[in-house]
Write a protein that binds this DNA or RNA. Sequence first.
DNA 1: TATTGTTATACTCTATAACTATA
DNA 2: TATAGTTATAGAGTATAACAATA
Lengths: 140, 140
Amino acid sequence: MVTTTARDSDLASALVQTMHRLQDLHAETSRPLGLTPQQAHLLCVLITGPLGMTELSRILSIERSSLTSMVDRLERRDLVARVANPADRRACRIELTPAGKDLAHQCHDAVVDRIATLTGDLPAATRTTLTTALKSILTQ
Amino acid sequence: MVTTTARDSDLASALVQTMHRLQDLHAETSRPLGLTPQQAHLLCVLITGPLGMTELSRILSIERSSLTSMVDRLERRDLVARVANPADRRACRIELTPAGKDLAHQCHDAVVDRIATLTGDLPAATRTTLTTALKSILTQ
DNA sequence: TATTGTTATACTCTATAACTATA
DNA sequence: TATAGTTATAGAGTATAACAATA
């Protein structure tokens, strides 16, 4: 059906543009805090608790070897620490230091604030629909 | 108001997660085509016509000096070309070669297909609401 | 003087392949 | 043998500062 096809690509296009807009916004909020967007993402993922290298690499969608050097750099700045895992001597767990935790929360709050500003003009009903729709997309 | 605050951060959180999901999807569709996500973005931006370095750097949100090396690499692969701008001898215009145009369209179509699959289960009314809401966010 | 684009330099991000240590 | 994480290496993305050519 022609109408449906047009509407699908409109939505896809809007989602792609939104992705780029949010990437920029994410970079703009990370930079003044002295972080790359990737570093900010890593720190924010650790807010809910320490993670092993393999699990963290899966969440961030990067290779473990790439993660090693990222963690090296953050550890040098005392933002994260490698902690031994008593249950498995091969493994370690990456956790936020107090300074890292503070910075992670600053990042998180700054991004949420910026996005809240962007979406503030939407009617409550639209925000609810949007949230529900996005969540359903994410669970696929 | 507590309820509004909670709803705002839910939406912000859903948008951030969607951004990351779409970034992964974008990387996954670019890679088999032999492109990084940034290269794919650059090629797709040029689909609508040639652009100067300054304008292109603004659209991609990167410094002109960073763009120079990206264009160098794509030019070496004959995907883009630097064309002289007769109106201004300092400037050049970056345009897609036939191979670049082909690849750009492949990228674009692949991403739209993947996203259409993700959003295919949403009711038509929700898709419309979503599209309208995202467009209104983007114009801010 | 201002603008367009490039060069030089230094980091960061990323993947692949090979490796060590432990399970 | 399989898994957790690292090392070595190479290439790509990015910013800052300084520059050449043209407007």
